[in-house]
């Protein structure tokens, strides 16, 4: 039974909460990795999101963003990626030398292209 059918029968089943790694779309990941290879280096320590000025005010979390991009879950990021001020503090904190500012810039670009079917 598909999700839609289930909804029709009133089970109220929403779309699966699982990350389906086999069907998820990792074009954004590939786009960002190609243009900013240091994207691969993140080991999710959270230093960037700890120091982040924007993250204090609103949901903007580069560490989570990178993880979600890697999993192909980009829907959540569409708004979030626009909140970065590019101040570069995260870059000075990152213990892996990820070029964080360019990761943000490339992610924003990739999502824009994705939405225009250009990716």
């Amino acid at each position: 039974m598909s999700v839609r059918q289930a909804n029709r029968f009133g089970f109220g089943i929403n779309q699966s909460r699982q990350i389906n790694y086999d069907t998820s779309d990792r074009k954004v990941r590939d786009y960002v990795t190609l243009r900013e290879p240091s994207f691969r280096l993140c080991f999710a320590c959270g230093g960037c999101s700890a120091t982040c000025t924007a993250g204090e005010h609103i949901s903007f979390n580069l560490r989570r963003m990178i993880t979600l991009i890697r999993r192909g879950e980009i829907d959540l990021l569409r708004d979030e990626v626009t909140r970065c001020m590019l101040c570069g503090k995260c870059m000075l904190v990152c213990p892996r030398g990820v070029n964080t500012r360019n990761v943000v810039a490339m992610t924003a670009e990739a999502i824009r292209k994705l939405d225009r079917n250009e990716l």
């Binding site: 000025t53 204090e56 001020m85 590019l86 101040c87 570069g88 500012r101 810039a105």
Partner: peptide, 15 residues
Amino acid sequence: QGGVCCGRPLMLAGR
């Protein structure tokens, strides 16, 4: 207590 970025980095990025 942590401020808001001055805007120069965005400007350098052409924004």
